[in-house]
Design a protein around this nucleic acid. Structure first.
Length: 564
RNA sequence: UGGGGCGUGGUGCAAUGGCAGCACACCAGACUUUGGAUCUGUGGAUCUUGGUUCGAAUCCAGGCGCCCCAGCCA
């Protein structure tokens, strides 16, 4: 269960590729991941990336990175850099195959000329509103534009002048002449080129006409010799259009195969919504650890391996599904459990004084760094008379089945001694426990009871004298319902934001070995969860992000006790 | 009679005419110096109707349900 066979799971796309190779439709495999540089990558993109790169590799082929940058007003270099960084972090490499649809603008233009000359494309003067009206509806056919039958010469002339910048935005478009009565809306004379007087992040002011995605994507794949163009289900009914362009242009014909995109419970994976969360301040940025963006997950402490294993596990199909986020969390924990060092950190400290422990004495106990990995070795943890333990690890009135510290009861300090609670000091005003006074049994060094007595509870602790102060940011799911993207009548996804998705804890006490931790370092705080050092950390004052809690069986028991 | 796609436990994915299986979740137990991890076990599914067949989740026909498409976005 720990090490799944890597990327060998079969799926319908893999079978289709095998079939293509067997039949000689293609003699090699080339895929591509085609993001538009207008936003940050999220876990949904990770699925596409793993499929595109993974399948190419599985067949000894390559995967190109191609930016589909056909809309200058929405795109920016900032996004291309971020996208490249995130793909590399995930563990994939496109080597020298970094392409841009904008690299093909001149060729695309020539393709358009060819279609005009074939009488398969025309310049339309209709306004955007008119084009919409002429398009018809889902159940009624559209009608042909009065400009549809212009001569080839006139179309050529007009299109050249569009390129030359003679017309304002929106004045004219170039359209494919296909079928205004088609049941497939994409075939009702789709727009191929529009006029946009805007500076493109790569081509500058070289162009004022830009190809539509539909006129760029298929041909870009063709130019690159892409054999298998894998994409979202949404493009299923665009395929006949791409086929039409490729066939009319008589160029290399890739095979497009569509699969369902990822939906994750308690999560939103829409660029538009994610952007809104950032811009309206619902989260602290694109890399907020609560975000499903790759940068957010990275900052949260996710490993790229866990994300890739998750994508393998969920499989590939055409079913529109909602994957339970607990699967992601399970795989994350499984990965972290194997590789991350253990450490002790007290999130909500309360003071414990060992009354019979010598004043000023310090001992060091050997602690195992990772019980799952012997090679991780051990470390020394200092112990002294005054300690901090978790406030929740003490109950003045212990509930049933509670086997931690309470008056008159014993508990084991992990790697330390067995202690007994003798006295509780409370704040006279608030009644809050301010100090727990205990005695220790000197015979139990290391936590072993030589008399064989059973001590059920083992709790973590930090020596007050040696503790490092830390900030800990606790995260919970951003949304309170499984499908925030499908709000009930009259609500929006924002109505389901979890008000408790972030809790900032200050004054946390962590063991001194954590003083040298650097941003990105991951740890398991024993009995609490996995944490990752945040870039906001300053020397001597680390900040930790909760990556994932440990399974908490006690919380479940207690919840059931309270629930009746 | 617009076009396209999809229906398998609660969730996701398998089974490619031959005993419906795996993972997560759930529930119960064992073990435990992390109430972690690990181990064992229980329950639960083929949208529906009819047909073909010795045999159907799979093939055929009809029905039902859900999703996508009317940007000069991608």
């Amino acid at each position: 269960m720990t090490n799944e066979s890597s990327s060998s799971a079969s799926n319908f796309i893999r079978e289709a590729i095998e079939e293509d190779l067997r039949q000689g439709r293609f003699t090699y495999v080339r895929t591509r991941f085609p993001p538009e540089p207008n936003g940050y990558l999220h876990i949904g993109h990770a699925k596409a990336i793993c499929i595109d790169f993974g399948l190419a590799e599985a067949f000894g082929g390559k995967c190109n990175l191609r930016f589909d940058d056909t809309n200058p007003v929405k795109e920016d270099v900032e996004y291309v850099e971020a996208i490249k960084e995130d793909i590399h972090w995930l563990g994939f490499d496109w080597e020298d195959r970094e392409f841009y649809a904008s690299d093909y603008f001149e060729q695309l233009y020539q393709f358009a000329i060819k279609l005009i000359k074939k009488g398969k494309a025309y310049v339309d003067d209709l306004s955007p509103e008119q084009i919409r009206e002429y398009r018809g509806t889902l159940t009624e056919p559209g009608k042909e534009s009065p400009y549809r039958n212009r001569s080839v010469e006139e179309n050529l002339n007009l299109f050249e002048r569009m390129r030359a910048g003679e017309f304002p935005d929106g004045a004219r478009v170039l359209r494919a002449k296909i079928d205004m009565a088609s049941g497939n809306m994409n075939l009702r004379d789709p727009v191929m080129y529009r006029i946009i007087h805007a500076t493109h992040h790569r081509t500058g002011d070289q162009w004022c006409i830009y190809p539509m995605y539909d006129f760029a994507h298929g041909q870009s794949d063709s130019i690159e010799g892409v054999t298998h163009s894998l994409c979202d289900l949404a493009y299923e009914d665009h395929r006949p259009l791409y086929d039409w362009f490729l066939d009319e242009l008589e160029i290399f014909h890739p095979r497009q195969i569509e699969f369902a995109r990822l939906n994750l419970s308690y999560t939103i994976l829409s660029k538009r919504y994610l952007k809104q969360l950032v811009e309206q301040g619902y989260v602290r940025g694109w890399d907020d650890p609560r975000m499903p963006t790759l940068r957010g997950m990275r900052r949260r402490g996710y490993t790229p391996e866990a994300i890739r294993r998750f994508i393998e596990q969920i499989g590939v199909s055409k079913n529109e599904s909602l994957v339970d986020i607990s699967l992601l969390e399970h795989i994350l924990r499984d990965d972290l459990n194997q590789r991350v060092p253990r450490v002790m950190g007290v999130l909500d400290p309360v003071k414990v004084v060992i009354t019979n422990y010598p004043e000023g004495q310090v001992e060091e106990f050997e602690a195992v760094n990772n019980p799952e990995d012997e090679s991780a070795g051990t470390r020394l943890v200092p112990f002294s008379k005054v300690l901090y333990i978790e406030r929740d690890d003490f109950r003045e009135v212990p509930p049933p089945k509670y086997h931690r510290l309470s008056p008159g009861r014993e508990v084991r300090l992990r790697y330390g001694y067995i202690i007994r609670c003798e006295e509780v000091v409370k704040d006279p005003q608030t009644g809050e426990v301010v100090e727990i006074r205990c005695t220790y049994d000197p015979e139990t060094r290391g936590g072993y009871a030589p008399d064989g007595r059973k001590v059920k509870g083992t709790i973590h602790w930090v020596s007050a004298l040696h503790a490092v102060d830390a900030e800990v940011r606790l995260y919970d799911r951003l949304f309170t319902v499984p499908e925030p993207g499908k709000p009930e009548e009259g609500k929006t996804y924002l109505d389901y934001l979890n008000p408790d998705s972030l809790k900032v804890l200050t004054g946390c006490k962590v063991e001194p070995s954590l003083l040298n931790a650097v941003p990105g370092d991951r740890f398991q705080f024993e009995r609490k969860g996995y944490f990752c050092v945040d870039p906001d950390s300053t020397p001597g004052h680390p900040v930790f992000n909760l990556t994932a809690t440990l399974r908490d069986t006690w919380a479940k028991i207690e919840g059931e006790l309270q629930g009746g």
